[in-house]
Design a protein around this nucleic acid. Sequence first.
DNA 1: GATGAATGAGATTTCATTCAT
DNA 2: TATGAATGAAATCTCATTCAT
Lengths: 207, 207, 207, 207
Amino acid sequence: MKKRIVKKPDVRRLEIILAAQQLFEKNGYTKTSVESIIAEAGIAKGTFYYYFKAKQDILRALIEHMGSEMESIFNGVAEHPDLTATQKLKKILRGPEKSKISSSPIMNILHKPENRELQEQLNIQSINVLAPLIATILAQGKKEGIFTNTISVECVQLILAGSQFVLDSGLFSWSAQKRKVFLKTMAEMLERLGGAKSGSLRFIANL
Amino acid sequence: MKKRIVKKPDVRRLEIILAAQQLFEKNGYTKTSVESIIAEAGIAKGTFYYYFKAKQDILRALIEHMGSEMESIFNGVAEHPDLTATQKLKKILRGPEKSKISSSPIMNILHKPENRELQEQLNIQSINVLAPLIATILAQGKKEGIFTNTISVECVQLILAGSQFVLDSGLFSWSAQKRKVFLKTMAEMLERLGGAKSGSLRFIANL
Amino acid sequence: MKKRIVKKPDVRRLEIILAAQQLFEKNGYTKTSVESIIAEAGIAKGTFYYYFKAKQDILRALIEHMGSEMESIFNGVAEHPDLTATQKLKKILRGPEKSKISSSPIMNILHKPENRELQEQLNIQSINVLAPLIATILAQGKKEGIFTNTISVECVQLILAGSQFVLDSGLFSWSAQKRKVFLKTMAEMLERLGGAKSGSLRFIANL
Amino acid sequence: MKKRIVKKPDVRRLEIILAAQQLFEKNGYTKTSVESIIAEAGIAKGTFYYYFKAKQDILRALIEHMGSEMESIFNGVAEHPDLTATQKLKKILRGPEKSKISSSPIMNILHKPENRELQEQLNIQSINVLAPLIATILAQGKKEGIFTNTISVECVQLILAGSQFVLDSGLFSWSAQKRKVFLKTMAEMLERLGGAKSGSLRFIANL
DNA sequence: GATGAATGAGATTTCATTCAT
DNA sequence: TATGAATGAAATCTCATTCAT
């Protein structure tokens, strides 16, 4: 019999979540078995079900975990008092440098095609978190004279959703080039919609 | 023992595909068992695997089938010589009245959350089919004086993708109201981007 | 729902192996379904696959099990300090009286033609185990003055292999008579090769 | 529909058998599907079952076919009036130069481990065919003064069986060296049993 | 003689979940 | 809290064989 290792519930729970995250990112939710999660986490099966009622539960937990991480990180940027709207946009769209979220640009979180389940949920989360923030930043930009029009939250949501679908799905098989074209298109849309000077958002294409 | 019913391969094949379509739409791909497909199609298990090498195969076949149907229907509309751009847009966005594609509005094909596999593939197909068509129609609209700007295919793709993600996923739980707000937003975006008169595309919100 | 009976892994594992052995001996490996094994063992399907990764696995396990049993039994005989070479030969060729290996004469283990998979593996095992032992015993026999020549291990292997093929395969359909003729032939071969007195090994034919 | 190609029954039958032979030799009987046989033979499924009642049937037919080929070839050698016993032995054990039986030495026919079904049957056939022939040749050898003792058919069978098991099974994983040791052992056995001069049959080891 | 669509009994395997310890 | 043996429903797939044409 294996040694029985007792840990504080919160610690253990998080360990399991993190183990699951790794596997989900690598193989996708469906293709990750509870078996492999417990192996990765170094626990017994019963322990898994002691912490999570069902496999789905850990997906939800993971998403919540990632979501709240994202939120706190992005909030930090959006509410920063010294940054201009453009700077904030850059930071947010590029992805925070030292994010624990795989430290990868926001645009690139979880592109794996086998990850639809997790991905979609996260996309939704991120859209829900980001859209209002970005809308606020755009409003700040209007104050700063970059934009002349207000861009609604819905509009931002739609654009974020579109770009995520387009870029994430991995189902269109984009070349790096095509990808850049898309980002440029997105930038131009924002310029036109916001009434900004042409080219003022071009930096987006280079993220 | 069951009686042996021999049919022409094409007929049988389509029958099976159609049976699968029904079940996929009702329960989703994953939750539809081969067992249930053969029951619905009234064939033996072996027959299924005589026509399709694996379960995945029928998904691919179905998608191709739907894709080519979509294409022919939409092409018919887009190339119609007597319709104005606005009329064409209405027709296409509303979904063709008697489409065999479940005769449901294009916006509403397969909203079930359990249908991700099929849905996403179809979304991609439809975006790939629709975006160029719509771009062409918008160009026609420019000639007709409705728009002053050209809207690129990429831009259309992005908007379609966005709206599909937002509307389809069923993961945002939209109220009918929220939905309308979104469609209105989308219409306004197109107006602004295309340089159309405000309100000229409002009909989109009423589809 | 069945009651859950928990046992020590070793016990359970052996139970399953033994159940499989019975069925393999009765119907052959190929014709024995996992279904029937679990029925015989009184376990759930999942339990089988908890212990054995695949059906093949249990064959391997069974062969190993039988092999090591054979080995320990034969070793006991061959190393016995008080027995003459002839006595040892008798014991080994007759098969140990109370062997757990189906308590059947070594020559007769698994003659079923449908058992080729298991049989061949076992034949190989038994040849590899027996040949050196027998060669040693024959050497002892030489010391005891029964033989004048040394008989090499390879030679023993060849004779064992031949007799097993001839007797086991069940593919020659031997009468009991023919069988005896063969055993006598084998005895004579050993006598001549070992330079023993004619008739000194005749007992082999009566096993 | 495919063109309907009509052939003389015997021709067609043989074609199918030959197609099967190829596949059996490559993949073994069990792993060869009727499907693949008809593909190889270029016929329809019905046609197969028109000629052979069941899959087993074609195995039997193939074995008979090969058996009778073997027989006629070996008979030709054994009954040759001008050859000495030694020459005949060489020829037979080496395998006939241009045999259609894969033109391979008799010792090497069908060593594939996946071929047990076919192999064993053929081994039996070949033993049954060869043993009497070889016994006759050995008797001729006695007349020619090479041997002083008679070697019985059973004895030859046993040795053939042993060497086939040992060499064929491929389950002992023999090095070329080990193999030669075995052939040498076999030669020595024959010498001793037949009372021949030591070394007179050494050529066997070099086949 | 020949075709190939159709059959269906079985076989193996997976894995989320439970529960006695 | 923790363990891991046990469960069993469900799923996919194979393939020898049949039979209407």
